[in-house]
């Protein structure tokens, strides 16, 4: 076959595949948004949910989702970046390193329901905490750390070795070179990893069912003492997230407006992930510009 024709066919195939992917995405988004957005109102976002009556909102679930996300990232990002630095800069190539890498990859592919069961055993029963935000966050950390380690390692490895040599040749210690040369250069990659991990946290239900629980206590948003029972900031309280709420409303809800709540919650979930990603990228680019002086 003529190579020009082959080239044209290949271009055609890839273009149509890309179009299919975009079409599926657009269809999915419009389906969720068209059915969900009409349900979203200020009231829907600011009223607590109701188990039996019509007109319940998602105030607490929305807050819980962001709060668990925050706590999870607070644990995941430092640990994951440190792991990535270790794998990229300190681990000597060899059997042990390969073993660690296999473990990380295996951890990344664990089904989230298994992580949830593990969380139930360890963070709920063994610790005696019961269903808590911290338990949920730790369970989510377990399956986010591998992603974070992997992404950070790759990001650090893609920094040109000349820059590292430049640092070392200036008489800078290894750690200082990592801190002032490698991490700033790897920052965009690490940020992308963190955003991907956040998306997973936001949408995760299975791992949270048995760790953060299916209920939220009555919260008083003016109570900011994190040790108070009714404070939203208390990390030792049960917390149903938005994704879990969608699941539980759909499977065992007894209120009359199940469909409306599920549709509205799904739309809010999708939009929140979108807004969160955009915000994170925007903040990240400001930080990156400041560090690298690029335009």
């Amino acid at each position: 076959m003529n190579s020009k024709i082959a080239d044209r066919i290949a271009t055609g195939i890839f273009t149509s595949l890309a179009l299919i992917i975009v079409a599926v995405l657009v269809a999915l988004f419009s389906f969720i948004l068209i059915r969900g957005v009409p349900q979203i109102s200020w009231e829907f976002l600011t009223t607590p949910s109701s188990t039996v009556r019509e007109g319940g909102g998602i105030r607490d679930q929305l807050f819980n989702s962001f709060y668990i996300l925050f706590i999870t990232m607070l644990i995941t990002v430092p640990l994951g970046v440190c792991g990535g630095i270790y794998m990229a800069e300190y681990a000597k190539p060899g059997k042990i390193t390969n073993f660690i890498r296999s473990c990380i990859e295996m951890l990344a592919s664990l089904p989230s329901i298994v992580v949830g069961m593990f969380g139930l055993l360890v963070f709920v029963n063994t610790t005696g905490w019961g269903y808590t935000i911290i338990g949920g966050a730790l369970a989510l950390t377990i399956f986010n750390i591998p992603v974070m380690v992997r992404v950070s390692e790759d990001a650090i490895r893609t920094v040109p070795p000349e820059q590292k040599e430049a640092g070392l040749a200036l008489g800078i210690t290894h750690w200082h070179t990592i801190k002032t040369v490698l991490i700033p250069s790897a920052f965009p990659g690490i940020l992308t990893g963190a955003i991907l991990a956040s998306g997973r946290v936001f949408g995760e239900a299975a791992a949270l069912l048995f760790t953060a629980g299916l209920s939220t206590p009555r919260l008083d948003y003016l109570d900011l003492n994190p040790f108070s029972e009714t404070s939203p900031l208390n990390i030792f309280r049960p917390a149903e997230t938005l994704a879990v709420h969608i699941w539980s409303v759909n499977t065992n809800g007894i209120m009359p407006d199940i469909r409306e709540i599920a549709n509205g919650s799904s739309a809010v979930l999708v939009l929140s992930v979108l807004v969160f990603n955009l915000l994170a990228r925007w903040l990240g680019s400001i930080v990156h510009k400041k560090v690298t002086a690029s335009k």
Binding site: E162, Q163, E165, A166, A169, V181, S185, V291, T292, A293
Partner: peptide, 10 residues
């Protein structure tokens, strides 16, 4: 070094 290797900074 062979090729200028400034840091990605100002």
């Amino acid at each position: 070094f062979q090729k200028g290797n400034p840091f990605p900074q100002s």
